[in-house]
Every structure is written in C-alpha cells, then in structure tokens.
Amino acid sequence: MFISPMLLQTAPGPFSQNAFIYEPKIDGHRLIYDQPDASHVHLYTRHNNECTRQYPEINGSTSALFPHDITLDGEIACVDPVTGAVDIEAVTSRLNTKRVDKIRRLMERLPVTYVVFDILRYKGKDLRNRPLMERKAILASLALPNAHFGVIPYVEGMGEALFAQMQARAMEGVVAKRKNSLYETGRRSAAWQKIINWTYAEVYITGYRKQEFGWLAAVPDPSGRLRPAGVIKYGTSTIHRQAFRGMARQLIKSEDKEFVYLEPQMRARVRMRNWTKSGMLRSPVFTGFIV
C-alpha cells in the first residue's frame, strides 16, 4: 500500500536546537518500501509511481526480505565508485530504466543503496502517530535484509556543525526533524525542514523561451567562448521580469519557433544544487542581476 510521504519545509539557513535531530540530506530520490507480508514488496516514488522492478537489490528478487510486514520511508542513492560521492544522475538512470536486461547490467555498474530514515508500519501496527524518536528506536532495532539497505545516521542539537561537514564534503545539505514529530502524511511541515548546501554561479543570459517562462543561461568554456548551461525558471519576481523585458528588446539578434536569442550582455547570479556531469546547472534559481 502506498503512503504519501511527509514533506519538508525549507529553512532559511542552518540552525541548532536541542528539540531537533539532524540528518545528512541524501541526493537521491524518495522511496516508500512497502512489504505487506514475508514474500512481497512494492516500491513507490513520492508521487505514487511504482518502481519495484527497477531495484532488484531491494525488491526481494535477488535477496532476502524482512520476515514480517513493514513499511519504510527513505532515499534511493547511488555512490560513485571512484569519488565516493552520491551520484544523482546514476539514480535517475536507474529509475528510468525499465528493460530487465538493462536493469541487470546497471545493477553491477550502478548498484543502489536504500537509505532508510523512518518506519511507518511494523508487524501490523501503524506507527505514524508515534513520536519520531520512538520510530527511530524501532528502526534501529531491525536486522536489515542485505548490504543494499542502510539506516541514516543523525546527531542531536548540532545542526550547524553537521551542515559545515556537509559543505566540506560537497553534499546536498541537512534535514532537521523535531524529536517529538508525528508522521504527517502527504504534507509539508515545519517539524521537518531541509537546509540546502547551495552552489552559486554567475551566468550570461543569452535568450528566453517564447511560451513557458525560462531564460537561457550560458557560461564561458575554457577557451572563453560561451556555451549553453541550462534554463533559469525559478526565483524571478515581477520586477525582475519587467526589467529583463526592457533590456531584452535592445539585445535581440535572432529567433526560432521556441526561443528568442540575445546578445550576451546581461549577467545574473544563480544558486543551484550542483553542476551536472555534462556541465549544466542543476535546478538553477535566479538570485539577482549583475550590474
């Protein structure tokens, strides 16, 4: 049975309070693990898309299961074997692969780990109305089926120190959770907050979409020439868009069915999750023009 996961609010910055625990934020995709009995497993993304077949490492087809019914909440992650970093692009590749033969090959090249951070149901009992630390204690007592399962570590009251460690390791950030929080299915709650370790970049705006909003971003390559780096879709206010339109009229150089292209005279600062392997901005958010 799918359970819509509890979602996180965004905190303005790192903080430390004794009423909270703090976990490393894993850069993967959310996964609800539902095992209704000792022989069946169903895996779901946060949007209720079943992805059981994509992950033989944890779906029971190539490994043992828990000896009882259980529902878990966690994150699917892939670790780069060379750098040891969590690789979100590898996770995306695993999630999008449906053919059995390709899945088998990817299991060897891009194995996944299910990083568990909560337990929602156990031995026929719904645990969502129990305090977080009680659920954590039950989770810690479990024997995990195989090496592809792990339980997320946490610290109490030291959010800023953990965030500094995540910055030093170039990890995604920190999740703060109130110790007495209940599991609020399918909604965002201030009881769970994410603090993102943003990366910042300066880009040139080289065009815009004609239909759906988006500014084309470019950055210099090693030779100094501009190369495409993605589309900025978030973070702009009405004032920013008005200012952009006023400047863009004077910079148009060409267009096609989808885009209007501009002389690269406007620059902007963006924040993002990280750079992709192909050198693109990942989820860029506009923070201001550079003048």
Rank of each mutant, 00 (worst) to 15 (best):
S4D: 10
L7M: 11
L8S: 15
Q9S: 13
T10G: 00
Q17I: 05
Q17P: 06
N18I: 09
E23Y: 03
E23R: 00
I26G: 12
D27N: 10
H29V: 10
R30P: 15
L31I: 12
Y33D: 05
D34F: 15
Q35A: 08
D37Y: 09
S39P: 03
T45K: 09
N48T: 09
E50C: 13
C51G: 06
C51A: 08
T52M: 10
P56L: 12
E57V: 06
S63E: 08
A64T: 10
H68V: 01
H68N: 15
I70F: 14
I76N: 03
I76H: 06
V79H: 10
V79R: 06
V82W: 04
V86E: 04
D87M: 09
S93P: 10
R94S: 08
R94T: 13
T97F: 11
K98P: 03
V100P: 02
K102R: 12
I103P: 00
V112C: 03
Y114T: 00
Y114P: 01
V116K: 04
F117G: 00
F117I: 07
D118V: 06
D118H: 06
L120F: 02
R121N: 08
R121F: 13
K123H: 13
K125R: 14
D126A: 08
R130P: 03
R135F: 02
A137W: 13
L144P: 03
L144D: 02
F149P: 06
F149T: 04
V151C: 07
I152G: 05
Y154C: 03
E156F: 06
G157L: 05
G157K: 10
G159Q: 07
G159P: 04
L162E: 08
L162D: 04
A164M: 12
Q165M: 14
Q165A: 15
Q167A: 10
Q167H: 04
R169F: 15
M171G: 08
E172H: 00
E172T: 11
R178G: 14
E184N: 14
E184V: 10
T185R: 15
A190F: 07
A191S: 15
I196A: 04
I196N: 02
A201D: 11
A201Y: 04
T206Y: 03
G207N: 05
Y208C: 08
R209P: 01
F213E: 06
A217M: 10
P222Y: 14
G224K: 06
R225D: 14
L226I: 01
V231Y: 03
V231H: 07
Y234A: 07
G235I: 01
S237A: 04
R241H: 13
Q242I: 04
R245H: 11
G246P: 05
G246D: 14
G246W: 07
M247F: 13
M247E: 12
Q250L: 12
Q250F: 12
K257Q: 11
E258T: 09
F259Y: 14
V260A: 07
L262P: 05
P264D: 00
V270P: 04
V270T: 02
R271W: 09
M272Q: 03
K277S: 15
M280Q: 09
P284V: 01
P284R: 02
V285T: 09
F286C: 00
T287Q: 12
F289E: 01
I290C: 12
